[in-house]
Computed example of a mutant assay.
Amino acid sequence: MNLHEYQAKSLLSEFGITVPPGVLVGSADAVTDREQLPTSDSGRWVVKAQVHSGARGKAGGVRLVEDVDGVRQAARELIGTRLITAQSGPAGLPVDSLLVEPAADIRHEYYLAVTVDRALQRVVMIASPHGGMDIEAVAEAHPEAIHRAVINPTVGLVAYQARELAFALGLEAGQLKAFVALALNLYRAFVERDAALIEINPLASLAGGELAIVDAKVALDDNAEYRQGDWWQRRDIAQEDPAERKAIDHGLNYVSLDGNIACMVNGAGLAMATMDLIQHAGGMPANFLDVGGGTSAAKVTEAFKLILENPRVEAILVNIFGGIVRCDLIAEGIIEAAREVSLEVPTVVRLAGTNAEQGRRMLAESGLALTAEDDLSAAANRAVELANTSREAAR
């Protein structure tokens, strides 16, 4: 679950991390006088749209203003609109509030984050002297400027690792103590709040030498909802893809993609292989959809509904391995779901495992637009062929 910037900074402050004073604005009339704004030594403020996306500044979602009228003007122009960024997709994300903070006199920008390195199976802290830009761009242009501390889960981040990162960033002697304290508290926040990512970009060195968190991003692990209930109550579902939100509510793992061939698979690894084969056959997957190992007719029905909400879908490939659940029961569920949603999109079903032959026979005798296959490559090729036929027919 992603947090808004103001929420992320609130979370960090719980762990003794100093964040800039800020005011959340929900309408153009919310701020009536200067006294309501946080104190600004420079006499200027930064107004930032609260959306779950980076690259807000390039999209016009971050404004530098000098008075209350500037805050109101930004609110009139942003609140109630959809901000389209390089990360949001063409539909953009709704802007319901703005964060107003004092403008900082920044001397240098750094990057600092804590995340999980799945290859190492360890939490890592990542730092770079090139802040204020995407870490992927830094890694490509300046790979030598990416510094990592791999954290032993038994002892956690230790002070010497934080000092090594500080030296790598080229921080001044007077900043070392503050950076070490920040790094240790950041790791503590990551662990205690079950985070998947905490990113500070940029971490700024100000004119007076102090370090300041200019922007912060926090993503919490969905699997820890039962432990982080207070934060889950603050979840902003308006920022989430509607289809992905419905999938979560029904226990499905769904990610929208840009293709035209929908996938429904039981198992994440099998789903990835299925999407690869679709691309190998010349098609493009419209989604990642894992219905889980112990799927049911109800889950399959909801999966079909999710798939059919996507207007780009021209064919469906269902790839099920019957291990935990027999293929004949899966076929029965597919037939029931297809009838319930009045399935008209050409659908290829590949069944393998227990009672697969019986399941394929049930599909063939159903009288529905279901094509049964026993070979995955053949099923992918057939799905691509049907999608191309549908496109031609639409023309």
Results as ranks from 00 to 15, higher is better:
residue 5 E to G: 11
residue 6 Y to K: 01
residue 8 A to P: 04
residue 10 S to P: 00
residue 14 E to S: 12
residue 23 V to Q: 09
residue 24 L to T: 13
residue 27 S to W: 03
residue 33 D to R: 04
residue 33 D to M: 03
residue 37 L to I: 01
residue 37 L to W: 04
residue 38 P to Y: 06
residue 40 S to D: 05
residue 45 W to L: 08
residue 54 G to W: 13
residue 55 A to L: 06
residue 60 G to R: 03
residue 61 G to K: 01
residue 62 V to N: 03
residue 71 V to G: 04
residue 74 A to Y: 09
residue 76 R to F: 04
residue 76 R to P: 08
residue 77 E to C: 07
residue 78 L to Q: 04
residue 79 I to L: 08
residue 84 I to G: 10
residue 87 Q to W: 08
residue 98 L to M: 12
residue 103 A to E: 15
residue 107 R to M: 07
residue 110 Y to F: 15
residue 112 L to V: 14
residue 113 A to D: 06
residue 114 V to H: 12
residue 119 A to R: 15
residue 120 L to Q: 15
residue 120 L to T: 08
residue 121 Q to N: 15
residue 124 V to N: 01
residue 127 A to F: 08
residue 128 S to H: 13
residue 133 M to Y: 01
residue 140 E to R: 15
residue 143 P to I: 10
residue 143 P to W: 09
residue 158 V to H: 11
residue 160 Y to W: 14
residue 161 Q to K: 14
residue 171 L to S: 09
residue 172 E to T: 14
residue 172 E to F: 13
residue 176 L to Q: 11
residue 189 A to P: 00
residue 192 E to T: 12
residue 198 I to N: 04
residue 201 N to F: 13
residue 204 A to F: 02
residue 206 L to V: 11
residue 209 G to C: 07
residue 211 L to K: 05
residue 213 I to M: 07
residue 214 V to E: 01
residue 215 D to C: 04
residue 220 L to K: 03
residue 221 D to Q: 05
residue 225 E to F: 02
residue 225 E to C: 01
residue 227 R to K: 14
residue 228 Q to D: 07
residue 231 W to D: 06
residue 231 W to M: 06
residue 231 W to C: 03
residue 233 Q to E: 14
residue 235 R to Y: 13
residue 254 Y to Q: 06
residue 258 D to I: 00
residue 260 N to I: 08
residue 261 I to L: 08
residue 265 V to Y: 08
residue 274 T to F: 13
residue 280 H to Y: 15
residue 281 A to R: 03
residue 284 M to E: 14
residue 286 A to G: 13
residue 292 G to C: 11
residue 297 A to R: 09
residue 298 A to V: 14
residue 302 E to N: 15
residue 304 F to D: 03
residue 304 F to L: 15
residue 306 L to M: 10
residue 316 I to N: 11
residue 323 G to M: 00
residue 324 I to K: 11
residue 326 R to I: 01
residue 330 I to C: 10
residue 334 I to Y: 00
residue 336 E to K: 11
residue 340 E to G: 00
residue 345 V to S: 08
residue 355 N to S: 10
residue 355 N to I: 10
residue 358 Q to H: 01
residue 360 R to H: 00
residue 363 L to N: 11
residue 365 E to P: 07
residue 366 S to L: 05
residue 367 G to V: 02
residue 368 L to I: 04
residue 368 L to E: 12
residue 370 L to A: 02
residue 375 D to C: 03
residue 378 A to P: 00
residue 382 R to M: 15
residue 382 R to N: 13
residue 385 E to K: 07
